[in-house]
Design a protein around this nucleic acid. Structure first.
Length: 347
DNA sequence: AAGCCGGGGCA
DNA sequence: TGCCCAGGCTT
């Protein structure tokens, strides 16, 4: 009943999405990685950009990481781009450039977990593996009235088992697409369209007025505050850039030399701090301007950033590892995080 | 098992 | 504000 209704609804209501009319595992992989934790509308332009730039997994493998990150800029979760590059190289070198369709093989690839392996194998080869993503958790928990937390180990097992049982009676390609689309369009997180839902008579949550209580999630990410002071150092038309090599947010992307403090400092406190003393040692330095504090919210941290525009001669580069000069008109070739991009727009 | 990893849209 | 998005990796 459930499977039939969802599939029937899908055939009538599905969106026309470009990765649905192909069996090409490379194209499906591209779309699936882009869509991890990302709405279709947000990922769509990136999908087109990447597919146009890299027609095959071999072309993807031959690109530089800098170029891939630049193309990925603005989409977030940049480890996806780095992992894709590593995976593309493995497929070029160890799979003769042929993208695998097999679930077990896919699972071994970097950046491909159970969800993505199920998606690629079912969409490209109709393999019988159930997709269990945020849409599926929501739809199943509501329809079947499951109150187990979806972010617990036991919950993940329970939902996976149910998803595989449902798939047993279904056509993998069609049904996997259908459940996710149903969750995304009909059984939305907030204000789902229950009034017009073909499942409402048998939906546990709807019948028990629990739609807004399901699915249950018990971990909430705690947010850490960080205070960034970016030193935008100029010498003529040249600017200092910094490659972020540390194991931190925005790894392998670029920003400016950074003084990070655990607490919010006033401008004068920062100027008097040891960090700043170290930076201006043996140099002539003029602070041209200091920006307002910019607030940048990530899922797990809040960054308060100030941009210090500084003119400087005789910079001590070794005080900041990974720092190098670039011409102003070359900055746009480097992948930068959103907060830096916003600043550069007014540069 | 818990923490980490972006950015945007919505109520 | 808080929550969620076609999740996965590291500790």
């Amino acid at each position: 009943m459930f499977v039939e209704e969802v599939t029937k609804w899908y055939k009538i209501n599905k969106r026309d999405l470009p990765w649905r009319d192909t069996k090409n595992a490379y194209i499906i992989w591209l779309s699936e990685i882009i869509l991890q934790q990302t709405r279709v509308e947000q990922g769509l332009p990136y999908f087109h950009k990447f597919l146009e730039r890299y027609k095959s997994v071999t072309e993807f493998a031959d690109a530089s990481e800098d170029e891939i990150l630049k193309l990925w800029q603005g989409l977030g979760y940049y480890s996806r781009a780095r992992n894709m590059h590593a995976t593309a190289k493995i497929i070029k070198n160890e799979h003769n450039g042929v993208f695998p369709c097999n679930y077990e093989t896919l699972l071994k690839l970097k950046g491909v977990g159970e969800y993505t392996a199920a998606a690629i194998s079912s969409f490209s080869a109709n393999e019988k593996h159930a997709v269990v993503d945020g849409n599926v958790y929501r739809l199943l928990s509501r329809y079947f009235g499951i109150e187990t937390a979806i972010d617990s180990t036991i919950g993940k097992k329970e939902f996976k088992k149910l998803a595989y049982e449902l798939l047993e009676q279904a056509e993998p390609f069609l049904y996997n697409q259908a459940v996710m689309e149903f969750g995304a369009i009909q059984c939305k997180p907030s204000s789902p369209n229950c009034a017009n839902c073909p499942l409402r008579l048998n939906c546990y949550a709807y019948q028990h007025e629990m739609v807004d209580k399901l699915p249950v999630k018990d971990k909430r990410t705690k947010v850490k505050e960080r205070f960034f002071n970016y030193l935008v150092v100029k010498d003529g038309t040249k600017v200092l850039l910094n490659k972020r090599i540390a194991k931190d947010i925005w790894q392998n992307m670029y920003d400016f030399p950074l003084i990070e403090t655990a607490e919010r400092l006033t401008e004068s406190e920062l100027i008097q701090s040891s960090h700043f003393e170290k930076f201006k040692k043996n140099t002539k330095l003029y602070i041209k301007s200091v920006s307002d504090e910019k607030k940048h919210v990530l899922s797990h941290q809040i960054i308060y950033a100030r941009f210090w525009e500084i003119r400087m001669e005789n910079t001590l580069l070794d005080e900041f590892n990974g720092v190098f000069w670039v011409n102003e008109d070359e900055i746009d070739q480097y992948a930068v995080p959103k907060i830096v991009d916003n600043y550069l727009k007014k540069f």
